[in-house]
Design a protein around this nucleic acid. Structure first.
Lengths: 190, 190
DNA sequence: CAACTTTTTGAATGTTTACTCAAAACGAGG
DNA sequence: CCTCGTTTTGAGTAAACATTCAAAAAGTTG
């Protein structure tokens, strides 16, 4: 077989699903073998080791997240309205049963102690997300204001990613968003 | 030996340190044996198993957290000023090198997938913390306002617990706090 | 279709995992 | 000081862990 028989993207997707759910230490390569259907040898042949596969999953996730932010903000009538939509949607998702927080945030917290490469990678990706928010905000505000407000958005995203596990959290989160980010053009309440 | 030879509190403290740093899956009972100095048999004799020991560590941590909140808010001239002090102190800690986030938050995120007893326990403790904030706020605001503002505080705590890993985050976090929680009596900036 | 390189296979590697248990050591009560 | 329930010991267990490898299989190329 001179060409791979499986779809590399699909394997990463399935691994991402597993790692996202159970974390790095909580996932075993045996589980990767089971969920991807590949044999151990194949996985190690094409990905190297557990850490490298995890990193590819992280990268995949980060790319998708950045793309989603861009899509939402680009298709909104204004940056502010796009951000409102994005945050409201996130609050709704965070309360769902199968909600799994953010893969980058989970990795950041899980691997903070060893300070290894994966932790640094996740931190860098989170910084990319923040920079993306800042660049959109700079269309409407000066650099310093944009920087601070991007930080505020990140902090609220982190907060919602954790707070979402509490029951009946959606309404409360939406209220907090309106009160804590008053500079955003929130739609009138029904 | 009719009475235990070691200090139970001390063993839990050392286990807490380990679990806090590395998480549940990331910590091994071998490491517990090494850091506590107890033999495997002794640990299992007095704590049952890994999960039970972890739960005791969680409980220990939660108790200390609640006590710290009470101490800070009771000794402040007003609830609002106490909260400002508490949040500012947390922002400062979150940026320190050896910062390890919040043990309850880490556990909440790590064990969300299996939805087991430990996850429920951590969630319940976080709810206790929120209820404590709410009860203090009710001294100055009505019940509904207090409930929402307590949620806002929790969300900001969660956010800071994650955002703290970014470099140079203290100043930015302090600014976000002032802008996002404008109802608190922040001291004038120098 | 043969020669060659890439990919797959799956059993086997040695290590680490959580946890157990029978026997020994011990302190306290009579 | 002897007896009895409690605690400690640490070697030992079986399962799970990440990873490897020589051999087989399969696509590509001339």
């Amino acid at each position: 077989m001179a060409k791979a028989q499986y779809d590399r993207e699909e394997v990463i997707d399935k691994s991402l699903e597993l790692f996202w759910r159970n974390g790095f230490s909580g996932s075993s390569m045996q589980q990767v073998v089971e969920t991807t259907g590949l044999k151990p040898g194949s996985i190690y042949y094409s990905f190297g080791n557990k850490e490298a596969l995890f990193k590819e999953a992280l990268d995949h996730y980060a790319r998708a997240s950045l793309a989603r932010i861009r899509t939402t903000l680009d298709s909104a009538p204004s940056v502010g309205e796009g951000l409102c939509l994005f945050l409201e949607r996130m609050a709704g998702e965070a309360a769902k049963q199968e909600f799994r927080s953010c893969f980058l945030v989970k990795t950041q917290l899980e691997l903070a102690a060893d300070g290894g490469e994966l932790h640094a990678f996740a931190a860098a990706k989170l910084r990319e997300v923040e920079a993306l928010f800042q660049s959109y905000l700079e269309r409407e505000y000066d650099r310093e204001t944009s920087r601070n407000r991007a930080a505020g958005i990140m902090l609220h995203i982190f907060g919602m990613r954790v707070y979402g596990y509490q029951p009946n959290s959606v309404d409360r989160m939406l209220r907090v968003l309106r009160e804590s980010l008053p500079w955003l053009p929130w739609p009138d309440e029904p």
